[in-house]
Protein backbone atom coordinates (compact mmCIF):
# COMPACT_ATOMS: atom_id res chain seq x y z
CA UNK A 1 0.00 0.00 0.00
CA UNK A 2 2.67 2.49 1.12
CA UNK A 3 4.72 1.53 -1.92
CA UNK A 4 1.92 2.47 -4.31
CA UNK A 5 1.38 5.75 -2.39
CA UNK A 6 5.06 6.54 -2.70
CA UNK A 7 5.03 5.64 -6.38
CA UNK A 8 2.06 7.97 -6.98
CA UNK A 9 3.78 10.75 -5.07
CA UNK A 10 6.97 10.26 -7.08
CA UNK A 11 5.03 10.29 -10.34
CA UNK A 12 3.18 13.47 -9.37
CA UNK A 13 6.45 15.17 -8.38
CA UNK A 14 8.04 14.14 -11.65
CA UNK A 15 5.08 15.45 -13.62
CA UNK A 16 5.18 18.78 -11.78
CA UNK A 17 8.95 19.08 -12.31
CA UNK A 18 8.56 18.30 -16.03
CA UNK A 19 5.78 20.86 -16.43
CA UNK A 20 7.90 23.55 -14.72
CA UNK A 21 10.99 22.64 -16.74
CA UNK A 22 9.08 23.00 -19.98
CA UNK A 23 7.95 26.53 -19.22
CA UNK A 24 10.32 28.95 -20.90
CA UNK A 25 10.51 32.52 -19.58
CA UNK A 26 7.94 34.68 -21.33
CA UNK A 27 9.11 36.55 -24.39
CA UNK A 28 8.35 39.75 -22.58
CA UNK A 29 10.20 42.11 -24.89
CA UNK A 30 8.52 40.77 -27.97
CA UNK A 31 5.06 40.83 -26.42
CA UNK A 32 5.57 44.36 -25.14
CA UNK A 33 6.67 45.56 -28.57
CA UNK A 34 3.76 43.84 -30.22
CA UNK A 35 1.25 45.18 -27.72
CA UNK A 36 2.59 48.68 -28.23
CA UNK A 37 2.11 48.38 -32.00
CA UNK A 38 -1.36 46.90 -31.68
CA UNK A 39 -2.50 49.48 -29.18
CA UNK A 40 -1.26 52.54 -31.02
CA UNK A 41 -2.38 51.75 -34.57
CA UNK A 42 -5.43 49.54 -34.44
CA UNK A 43 -8.11 50.95 -32.19
CA UNK A 44 -10.77 48.23 -32.59
CA UNK A 45 -8.18 45.55 -31.82
CA UNK A 46 -7.04 47.58 -28.84
CA UNK A 47 -10.61 47.99 -27.59
CA UNK A 48 -11.39 44.28 -28.04
CA UNK A 49 -8.26 43.37 -26.09
CA UNK A 50 -9.22 45.77 -23.30
CA UNK A 51 -12.74 44.34 -23.11
CA UNK A 52 -11.41 40.78 -23.10
CA UNK A 53 -9.08 41.56 -20.23
CA UNK A 54 -11.90 43.19 -18.28
CA UNK A 55 -14.25 40.28 -18.97
CA UNK A 56 -11.65 37.71 -17.90
CA UNK A 57 -11.15 39.62 -14.66
CA UNK A 58 -14.92 39.54 -14.14
CA UNK A 59 -15.01 35.77 -14.76
CA UNK A 60 -12.10 35.31 -12.38
CA UNK A 61 -13.87 37.42 -9.74
CA UNK A 62 -17.06 35.38 -10.15
CA UNK A 63 -15.12 32.16 -9.59
CA UNK A 64 -13.41 33.63 -6.55
CA UNK A 65 -16.78 34.67 -5.13
CA UNK A 66 -17.88 31.04 -5.51
CA UNK A 67 -14.81 30.05 -3.55
CA UNK A 68 -13.87 28.00 -6.59
CA UNK A 69 -10.20 27.14 -6.60
CA UNK A 70 -8.75 25.45 -9.65
CA UNK A 71 -7.94 21.84 -8.90
CA UNK A 72 -10.29 21.55 -5.93
CA UNK A 73 -13.95 21.75 -5.13
CA UNK A 74 -13.58 24.09 -2.17
CA UNK A 75 -16.83 25.86 -2.98
CA UNK A 76 -18.85 22.66 -2.53
CA UNK A 77 -17.58 22.15 0.98
CA UNK A 78 -18.45 25.70 1.88
CA UNK A 79 -21.99 25.22 0.55
CA UNK A 80 -22.64 21.82 2.15
Amino acid sequence: MWKSGLKNYALQSLRLALTKALMEPEEKNFVDQLRAKLEVEWTAIREARRRAEQAREKVSKSLTEMNFVSGTLVWLYSVL
Partner: peptide
Protein backbone atom coordinates in the same frame (compact mmCIF):
# COMPACT_ATOMS: atom_id res chain seq x y z
CA UNK B 1 -7.90 29.17 -24.90
CA UNK B 2 -6.94 30.60 -21.53
CA UNK B 3 -7.01 29.14 -18.06
CA UNK B 4 -8.82 31.26 -15.50
CA UNK B 5 -7.37 31.32 -11.98
CA UNK B 6 -5.08 28.47 -12.93
CA UNK B 7 -1.34 28.14 -12.47
CA UNK B 8 1.27 26.15 -14.30
CA UNK B 9 0.74 23.08 -12.12
CA UNK B 10 -3.02 23.03 -12.72
CA UNK B 11 -5.16 21.01 -15.10
CA UNK B 12 -5.00 23.55 -17.93
CA UNK B 13 -1.20 23.59 -18.18
CA UNK B 14 -0.92 19.83 -17.69
CA UNK B 15 -3.46 19.06 -20.39
CA UNK B 16 -1.89 21.47 -22.90
CA UNK B 17 1.46 19.76 -22.37
Amino acid sequence: SRGINSGEADAYARVLT
